[in-house]
């Protein structure tokens, strides 16, 4: 097989969606949130504080281009132009490199706000399992952060770690979660402190006779243990919500739920858009405040 034909097992599905039941032209305030993360970038457009559309794609090697391309997807699908958007907020690692953003807000505040919209005002604890970091967040009924903790020193417990295992096992990343349950006995977790060690350990387990599914189960368990130790530091208060790409991996989510003794709240939205959605909602609130202030001054 030629090098160029190599299958990319780690590659997750990109998506672009708009709500055809809404007409953005009727909206008073159109805001956008752009989340340029280390692995994925999302653009979310809200009309009058309601989700209208989003685009989720892989981050390239250039943050401004990633931001532009992410928003371009929604604009093209909706027939909207950048000038039609009243206010844009950048978030994520590349938040200061969004060329058309009016303001930058940290992804911690944006994820809390986004989770509040996606899961409702009863959400108190949020676990964001991002591409190359993990965040545990506590928030109030309005989605305002009350406590947070972030770990971005290593890739253990992050989406990038899962991509490495998908490539190693040569199994599409979307299948890992379900396959991790197809084991006779639940194995002990592999190293939860380092992806490189976990990879070496996984290879060793394969050589010792572990099936691929059993190795995946051991890695999912390691990820779960890793993030649970983080989230326990700030405490878990229900309702509990998971954002980020790993929220789509049932193998990790179910094991986290088991370790915490709680169930993650369900949502109809794509878990990866929480940060960008929160940013767009921040923009809406800001525009409302400015409008109210202008009306008061007039």
């Amino acid at each position: 097989m030629a090098a160029g034909d190599k299958k990319e097992y780690w590659r997750w599905a990109e998506s672009c969606w708009t709500d055809d039941s809404k007409n953005w032209r009727d909206a008073r305030i159109v805001t956008a949130g752009i989340d340029v993360g280390s692995v994925s970038s999302q653009a979310v457009v809200c009309v009058d504080g309601e989700l209208y559309g989003y685009n989720s794609m892989r981050t390239g090697n250039n943050s401004p281009d990633s931001a532009t391309n992410a928003l371009k997807g929604v604009l093209e699908k909706s027939g909207m132009k950048l000038e039609d958007i009243t206010y844009v907020i950048g978030t994520g690692y590349g938040r200061v490199n969004v060329p058309f953003a009016h303001k930058a807000i940290t992804e911690i505040a944006c994820h809390a706000r986004g989770a509040n919209y996606m899961g409702g005002p009863t959400i108190r604890t949020i676990l964001d399992m991002g591409g190359q970091d993990c965040k545990a967040i506590h928030c109030d009924e309005k989605g305002k952060v009350t406590n947070f903790l972030m770990n971005d020193k290593c890739a253990a417990g992050t989406g990038r770690g899962m991509e490495v295992i998908a490539d190693l096992m040569q199994i599409p990343i979307a299948e890992l979660g379900e396959r991790s349950f197809d084991v006779d006995v639940e194995p002990a977790a592999v190293s939860s402190t380092c992806v490189v060690f976990a990879k070496s350990e996984a290879l060793g387990l394969l050589k010792s006779g572990y099936t691929k599914n059993k190795v995946i189960a051991a890695y999912c368990q390691a990820m779960a243990e890793r993030v649970v130790s983080l989230i326990e530091r700030i405490g878990v208060e229900n309702d509990f919500f998971i954002t980020g790409g790993i929220a789509k991996n049932s193998g990790v989510v179910k094991r986290i739920e088991k370790l915490l003794g709680t169930t993650a709240a369900a949502t109809k939205y794509d878990s990866q858009i929480a940060g960008a959605l929160g940013a767009a909602l921040f923009g809406y609130t800001l525009m409302q405040k400015q409008g109210a202030a202008a009306a008061k001054a007039a």
Binding site: K144, T146, N147, F148, K153, T193, C194, S229, L230, I234
Partner: peptide
């Protein structure tokens, strides 16, 4: 708000 700055590693 309690802001936690730092990390957890093998140590």
């Amino acid at each position: 708000m309690i802001a936690n700055y730092g990390y957890k590693d093998g140590a």
